[in-house]
Amino acid sequence: MAEHSWHLALVCWVLHREFEREYEHTLNLEKMLKRCLFLELWHEHEAGSTPEARLVRGVDRLNPALMRYLTGQGWQDVGADAGALDRLQLPRLEASRALTTLYQEVRDAAVAKGLLASASRPTPS
């Protein structure tokens, strides 16, 4: 849990200015970092009731994909393809263009490296 929380806080810290440009107003970085690191803010986080909460939820969704790509683990162990990953990731990542773009870059790089199967196409009936 601690390592995961640390990763979330680090990504929020790195992307904070980009998030502010997207939302066109100042975001409370301290609140975002606390949300990553302290469970007492979990209810607000899960509800996505503030811009900071929605962004941290997006970072929380991005992190596993980023780690699977960076470590070379890939997705073969769960049988996921790019389409399945999109269905899981994109609803929470849509809180930020920067998160969506970063996710798409990770997904495409993972497909290119053979770590993730490209999206399955339905078989015609």
Rank of each mutant, 00 (worst) to 15 (best):
E24W: 10
L39K: 14
S5W: 09
Q89S: 13
L62D: 01
M67L: 10
A95H: 00
Q89N: 11
H16D: 08
E40Q: 15
S125P: 15
L90G: 05
V11H: 03
S120Y: 04
P64E: 00
R92G: 13
M32H: 03
A84K: 06
H16T: 03
F38C: 07
P122Y: 04
K31V: 08
E30P: 14
D108T: 06
R92D: 15
R121P: 08
V56T: 09
T26K: 15
A65K: 01
E40H: 15
L99V: 02
L102C: 02
A98E: 07
L88P: 12
G114R: 01
A112Q: 06
W42A: 08
Y69C: 06
G79V: 08
L93I: 06
C36I: 02
P91G: 05
A9P: 04
D60F: 07
A47T: 15
E20G: 02
K113V: 02
S5L: 12
V106R: 01
F38M: 09
M1H: 13
C36A: 03
L8T: 08
E18F: 02
T100I: 01
L29D: 03
P64S: 00
L39F: 12
W42H: 12
L93F: 07
W75N: 00
R61V: 04
M1I: 13
E20P: 03
S120A: 13
T50S: 15
G72N: 04
L102Q: 03
M67T: 06
C12M: 11
E30V: 10
G74P: 13
R87I: 04
L33K: 11
A82C: 06
C36F: 01
H4N: 14
L85K: 00
A84L: 09
Y103K: 00
T50N: 14
L70R: 15
E18D: 11
A98C: 12
K34P: 10
M1R: 11
N28T: 08
A95W: 00
V56E: 03
L93K: 09
A109S: 15
A117T: 08
L88N: 13
L15N: 08
E24L: 10
L8S: 05
G79E: 03
L27V: 03
L27T: 00
E94V: 09
A2C: 10
A119I: 02
C36N: 02
P51N: 14
A2D: 13
V111F: 00
E94C: 10
